[in-house]
Structure formats: C-alpha cells, structure tokens
Simulated scan of single mutants.
Amino acid sequence: MNARTSENASFVAWRAQAQQAVETALSNWVLPGAPAGLGDAMRYAVLDGGKRLRPLLVLATSEAVSGDAAAAMRAACSVELIHAYSLVHDDMPCMDNDVLRRGKPTVHVKFGEAQALLAGDALQALAFELLVPGDASVPLGLSVALCRLLALSAGADGMAGGQAVDLASVGKSLDLPSLEAMHRRKTGALLQASVMMGAATGQVSSEATAQLQRFGASLGLAFQVVDDILDVTADSAKLGKTAGKDAACDKPTFVSLMGLESAQQYADRALAEAHDALSQTGLVHRDVLHSLADWVGRRDC
C-alpha cells in the first residue's frame, strides 16, 4: 500500500467515525418530544441523511488547532441544524418547490407545509441553544463568538441573503462576479463559518485565521460549482434530490454561464486555491482538511 492510499484510508476512517459521532449527537439533541408531532418532523429533517460536510469541517478545523472538543461538537451540530432548516424552507412550494431531498420526500411533502415551516423555525432556534448550554460547559466568550459567526453566516449578509438573490435571479443572466457574490452568500458563507467556528474553539494566529477564511471561501465556491455540474451530469437517484432542477427553473448557474468544461476548470482552480490557503496557515495537523477539500471538489454526488 502506498502512502497516498494509506492517507486516503486514514481519512475514510476518520470521516466515518466523525459522521457517526455527529449523528449520535444530533439524535440526542433533536428530541422527538416536541408537541403535536413537531419533534418527528424535526428529526426527519435532520437525521439519517447528508454527508455532514459542515460538521466535519468544524471538527477537522478544531482538531487542527487543538481546540475544545466538546464545544466543537456543539458547534458542528449547530451548523448542521442551520443547514437542515434552510433545506426544509428552500424545498417548500413558495421557494424551490422540491419533492425529493436526501433520497426521501421533502419535509413539507411528508408532514405538510405548516409543520415544515415550524420544524425549520425550531431547528434554527435549537442551533443557537446548543451554543449556549445551561451547564456553562462552553465558556461564555466562546459561546458569544460561535453564535456571532453562525448568525452572520445565516442571515441577510449570508445564506438568507444569497437565497433571496437566487430567487430574484430566476430567468435572468448574471455575470461571473454577480454569480460568485450570490453563492458566496447562499452556499459559501455557512461553509466558511464551519471552518471559522472550528478555529474559534482553539488558539489561532491572525495570519492563520486569514488563511482559514480564504480556505473556507474558496471551498465554498468549489462546492457550488461542482453542485451545478452534478445537477447537469448526475441523476436524481445518485444525488438524492431532483436532478436538472436548475435548468428547469431557469436559474443562473456556473454551467449555464460558462459551459460544462469551463465550469469544471473553474472548480479545479477554486479547489487549488483552497489547498494553497490551507498550506499557508502553518498549521501542522491539516491533512484531514486537505482530504475534506478533495472530497468536496472531486465528489460525484
């Protein structure tokens, strides 16, 4: 077995262990006891699906900076709850009107629109609750920092603002800077926040912090471009969501703007920039983050 194969095997083992740890923590924190079936809808939205990329970025970055492992797990789950809530709302008829997510019916199809709306609201609230535990197991200053990072990435200057631009852009042509700006908010902000929340659990120099921010931003763009490519090249069964939806809804994408081959080249450049930024951090234990970046930029589903 060569060194590269061994490294890949090590990452696969780390990823499987971390995914299971996140799944267990989410199951313990997203309880079924919320009234009128709300807990069931919340658990349906969160559990048993997804790559858990955002939590993995939190955990890997925290490990790279020798951070607080307990705080990192709370941060990892909080990011995933925000991501899950956004998918629940995005899939509803008033927005993207999707019926398939993570290989199963979307929450509003399964539970009705009102329950889906409430489930998303409750997941968003729970995300911030996790960052401020009642037992003070997370230092107050760290709780504040984590809450601020998450709020900024999810709000009007982040994910929600990006989704607003996305909806307003249906049927329109965007130039590359406008498309990049939209996706830095809609997709990239939460991915970048995942990296920075992991970094916040440890001690990081200002220089390393700046490079980690660049890493997260570049990785967010790479993720979105690959997502646009897969929407064209993969089928619904493999994606676990409706393939070809962007074109059907006449949404501007990197593929519609520059074509498939150029979009792939763009994704490769963004991935290379992510790796370069990570190398410039000076962090010793960054192999898992490099492997996560490749997992994002080379994925086929």
Rank of each mutant, 00 (worst) to 15 (best):
L176P: 01
P177F: 11
A160R: 08
C147K: 02
L174R: 07
G155E: 12
S153D: 04
D157M: 11
S153W: 02
A208D: 04
L219M: 14
V195E: 07
T187Y: 08
Q163G: 13
M197I: 12
A160Y: 05
S194K: 04
L140G: 01
V144D: 03
S178C: 08
V165Y: 03
S205I: 09
G198I: 02
L149T: 04
G158W: 03
A151V: 15
A208C: 10
P177G: 11
L191H: 10
S178W: 06
S153E: 06
A210Q: 13
T201Y: 13
A200T: 10
A210H: 07
G198C: 06
V195D: 07
S206P: 00
K172L: 15
L190A: 09
A199K: 04
S173T: 15
A210P: 00
A208M: 04
G216M: 11
G158A: 07
A164D: 08
Q192P: 00
L176S: 02
D135I: 11
P139I: 06
K172C: 14
D175V: 13
L149K: 05
P177W: 11
A217M: 08
G134A: 10
A189D: 06
L149C: 02
R184K: 14
G216P: 05
A145V: 06
V170Y: 00
T209L: 15
V195C: 09
D157K: 12
S143Y: 01
S169N: 11
V204S: 03
G158K: 02
V144A: 14
M196K: 03
S153I: 00
A151F: 09
V170S: 15
L140K: 06
L176C: 05
G162N: 07
S153C: 10
M196S: 01
L140M: 08
Q192D: 04
A199M: 09
L190G: 09
C147S: 15
K186Q: 09
S178P: 01
S153V: 00
L150R: 05
L146D: 01
S169E: 03
V204F: 02
L219W: 02
T201A: 12
T201K: 07
A151M: 10
A164S: 14
E180Y: 05
M182G: 04
V195T: 13
L167M: 15
G134V: 02
A156F: 09
G155S: 13
G158Q: 05
P177I: 11
V204N: 02
P139F: 03
T187C: 10
S143G: 12
A154I: 13
L179R: 05
S178Y: 06
G141T: 01
A200E: 13
E180D: 14
A199H: 05
G158T: 01
A199F: 06
L167S: 11
D175R: 05
R184Y: 08
G155F: 10
V138P: 01
E180R: 13
S218E: 07
A168M: 12
M196Q: 13
G155L: 11
T187I: 13
M159H: 06
K186M: 10
L149P: 00
L150E: 07
L179I: 10
D157H: 11
A181F: 08
L179K: 06
L179Y: 09
G162R: 04
A210S: 14
A154G: 14
L179V: 11
G141I: 01
A168V: 09
A145Q: 15
S218G: 02
V144N: 00
G158D: 03
G202Q: 09
A189H: 06
V138L: 07
P139L: 05
S173Y: 00
V204W: 01
Q203M: 14
S178N: 13
Q203S: 15
R214Y: 00
M197V: 08
